[in-house]
Design a protein around this nucleic acid. Sequence first.
DNA 1: TAATATTGGAGAGTAGTACTATCCAATGGA
DNA 2: TCCATTGGATAGTACTACTCTCCAATATTA
Lengths: 208, 208
Amino acid sequence: MRISELSRRSGVPVATIKYYLRENLLPRGEAVSATQSDYTEDHLKRLRLVRALVEVAEVPLGRIRAVLAAVDDPGLELHTLLGIAQYAVTPQFEAPADDPLWQRAERRTDELLAELGWKVDAASPARGGLVRAVATLDRLGTPPAPEMLCGYAEAAHRAAEWDISCIDPGAARADTVQEVVVTSALMGQALTALRLLAQEDESARRFG
Amino acid sequence: MRISELSRRSGVPVATIKYYLRENLLPRGEAVSATQSDYTEDHLKRLRLVRALVEVAEVPLGRIRAVLAAVDDPGLELHTLLGIAQYAVTPQFEAPADDPLWQRAERRTDELLAELGWKVDAASPARGGLVRAVATLDRLGTPPAPEMLCGYAEAAHRAAEWDISCIDPGAARADTVQEVVVTSALMGQALTALRLLAQEDESARRFG
DNA sequence: TAATATTGGAGAGTAGTACTATCCAATGGA
DNA sequence: TCCATTGGATAGTACTACTCTCCAATATTA
């Protein structure tokens, strides 16, 4: 198909598709002549993936590029790929040096992880994100109760079990890979939305 | 205290504090002379809240302004305030008209909510966010299984129970209000991080 | 008291992200 | 033949969140 049809079927403007081609977020179509390339269903699929990550998961384009490179790398194992997908959707930041509050948050986080028996990389961006949330709550004068963190961890574990059980390690790799990335990013959005809805319901029951 | 001390104690540059003053994210200090104003501990508290929402929860400044107006409105009930806080942290978007995929996602979402017995506003931004996530997963060819959505909902409900049970309706309003906003936004970050950590652990157990 | 620093206030400038518009020459289709 | 479309490149735009510079009026300090 040509670029105009790709645009029509995806709902993405031609100018934006050209931009994605320039930015290596979408591979070039096969050149048919100097003024025409042929795009396939795979291009459409990839374009939809990019739009899903941009619009819904709000992943910056630079991160999406990294995710796509991982998706296209046939040598990567699923566990590694999941790590890359996670890295992409987790905002990075540097930990402040010599902040006693931060160090306390790190201690509390590591204690929680030890108690749960979760084996995670100490350099995991998700661990950093959790430390930051705990440290920030502490700074604002409302440190989370250990039981609350534990309850949250149980809830998170329940969701993660579904995520991982959805992965069929025997299925065709190309399909699995996109599914891992998509599930990690979009079901994260779903969980966030569901928590807010549950809050609304619970708040209505108690106060409304 | 003067602006330089406010800057030192908060870690926020003076230029940024001036910007927040201009943008009505921080009330002006009491004018002592033509070149000096007095800032209080409340200013520091407010500044920390703004930074927490900007840096950690990644809420845009325009939304933060709306949240702060709600926080400062003494006439608002807790349930209403929670709604405003939710509205602020949920990105807005308009639903596509006449998209059969979207309509299917709406049906599935409403069925889920009915099954769960959750009483939520049909115009709730969180409901919109859930519909969008479901519709996007569908468009990408991996619609979430109903049991999975249900499992996620249970997990979300668990977290939300903690959120709401933390609220003491009898406590001093000014404190409660900030706690509601902060819990909603920052524990959301914590939940996201915990889910990724749980994924990492679960993935390591099964594949790693 | 003189020199230096700080402040409030305003406006302009900057950096990053994600497009969007315009232009061009080379086709392609009616 | 002639008008629309395409690939390719460059420049411009919109938005957010600062950051910088300047000014005159104080404050502080040597």
